[in-house]
Design a protein around this nucleic acid. Structure first.
Lengths: 330, 330
DNA sequence: ATGAAAGCGCTAACAG
DNA sequence: CTGTTAGCGCTTTCAT
């Protein structure tokens, strides 16, 4: 701005005024300033501006673990829907591990984003207390916070697990194998809880031999599926609690040529899921909505809402496409 | 820092020194400062720091259009690989339109990222000249810059198009339908050029009735595939230039029950592509590598490299999985 | 309608 | 080993 002021021959304050559209400048001066700014390719230094304005940056951060691609894209879509209307920049930073998640969050906090949306991968976010104490608004997405009380927007994984199991039971299944990832993850444990609840409701005992958790990667999941199919009293259906589990189960069924003889319900939509043979039945929810709602919550906080933190739980639904409607052979 | 200095009873400069590990402080003072900082949950204000240090933020920006999910995730992986080693924060901002792309880029520029990685969707980036003139390093990914001379890391779409067509010809195909998106997109036009070159090499005339571009969305692509199958002299194979085109082609073939009678080669990997029936053959390249190389280029620029802008072109390769190896019936 | 001065939180440069 | 001063580029406040 200094440079522009010098060139035009006015004070730096006049430049600031014009460039911010504050008014109170003669049209003539204003035009000269605007023209010169344009010509010089001026970009206001938002660092300085933010600093002066109490470290407000008109930027919100999104932190999540690089993983489910579909989730990623749909979530961002929802967030941008809202942020765009409020002229906020959304910056996304990914993490790969819990340690990195922490580092990434602190990096964004240091850069003074106005608020943070977090899809946590770590199991304790107590380290965020200072940010919270400093008044940085935080909203968790998809998984609840631990070690700290903040807003969260989740999906009804319990209900999803219940619905998936009940759906399979309706098609005659009693031996429903479960393949999941990290057992202590919220989404996994809740879905499993829902699965168990469905069995209870139907007066069927859960056979814990049918539950295989902590699989990492598709090949481990495939091995788990193989085991479940090789039991003396084998699984007639699968409920897979993560994309890599779904892929593993499909591979296992494929290899045996029994894709059309065993039922399969996955979670979350995947690209091409409806192009499989049989098309994949999933239990899912509207991820973009989750992003929108979380962002609106965050904006409310940024604008001073200091009510008690709340948890919003969004409904899940089954999308029957074929694989989940295969009846039990027995 | 002021608050810490007051609490500990030292000067603000000592705090700065300790917190930055500059050395030159008694262990005793240092410890007290560190302890107090910890206790107060201090986070250095990177806005102020950046401002003082000539607007250096240790942050690089990535701007791309929300679209291909797989691309998204793999690219970020490569970028983070490099950025992490250099302790840079990578912030990703997505855009939906050319206008928004511009706004997003300028928003990041104003926030003084140290460099920008760009997967451009717009067709002219001349508006970035001021950033370039101001010394902001820019590296384009996947598509070449227009209206500005900067580094770019691309994939060999021409070679990919050539390879796809040649591969199909090896399996006896002469009637190879092409379904593509926006015809003026670099990736589309280059792949098409490669396709034409393959025909020329093989001494076959290209039938322009077999080329359907500018499809938007899977249903338009499906309609295009239908048309190609309904020609008097119909297509015996498809080469699809984008994910939505691939999906459209698959749907069309499915609906007619001829998935195993017509060959199909897509571009870029998709989740579950190997689980389809038949598994999808694609021509692709290492997207993470593209991210890594681009980021290294950007870092070199950030560190002062001012050589002539260069374009790096990465090789593509065919991944034969089945759908592309179906022979021509004729 | 315009400008001067102060200061946001930090670090560079220089003293002691 | 520690402190003082100045200033990054902008906005706020108060004058004019």
């Amino acid at each position: 701005m200094k440079a522009i002021a010098d060139r035009v021959g006015v004070s730096i304050k006049s430049v600031s005024r014009v460039l911010n559209g504050e008014g109170g400048a003669s049209p003539e001066t204003a035009n000269r300033i605007l023209a010169t700014a344009e010509e010089m390719g001026f970009r206001r230094n938002e660092l300085a501006r933010g600093l002066r304005q109490g470290s407000r940056t008109n930027t919100i951060g999104l932190v999540l673990k690089e993983s489910s691609t579909r989730f990623f894209v749909e979530l961002i879509r929802g967030i941008e829907d809202v942020a765009e209307r409020h002229e906020l920049l959304v910056v996304t930073a990914t993490s790969r591990s819990s340690d990195q998640e922490k580092a990434t969050l602190l990096a964004l906090s240091s850069r003074r984003v106005d608020g943070l949306l977090i899809v946590p991968a770590s199991f304790d976010q107590a380290y965020l207390r200072p940010e919270q104490a400093a008044g940085l608004p935080l909203v968790f997405i998809d998984r609840p916070p631990a070690g700290i009380a903040v807003d969260a927007v989740l999906s009804d994984c319990f209900g999803g697990g219940y619905a998936a199991a009940a759906h399979l039971m309706e098609n005659g299944h009693r031996r429903i194998g479960v393949i999941g990832g990290f057992a202590s993850a919220y989404t996994v444990s809740e879905r499993l809880r829902g699965y168990r609840a469905a069995f209870e409701t139907h007066g069927i005992r859960v056979d814990r031999n049918l539950i295989r958790l902590d699989t990492e990667g598709a090949s481990e999941a495939e091995a788990a599926a193989d085991e479940l199919l090789d039991l003396a009293d084998p699984a007639t259906a699968f409920f897979t609690l993560g994309n890599h589990c779904t892929v593993g189960a499909i591979r296992s069924l494929r290899a045996r040529g029994i894709s059309n003889d065993r039922a399969l319900v996955g979670v979350e939509n995947m690209e091409l899921a409806d192009m499989l043979e049989p098309p994949l039945t999933v239990v899912t929810h509207d991820i973009s909505d989750m992003g929108r709602i979380a962002t609106e919550r965050l904006l409310a906080r940024i604008n001073g809402d200091d009510s008690t933190p709340q948890v919003v739980i969004l409904p899940t639904r089954i999308i029957p496409r074929g694989s989940g409607e295969i009846p039990s052979a027995r």
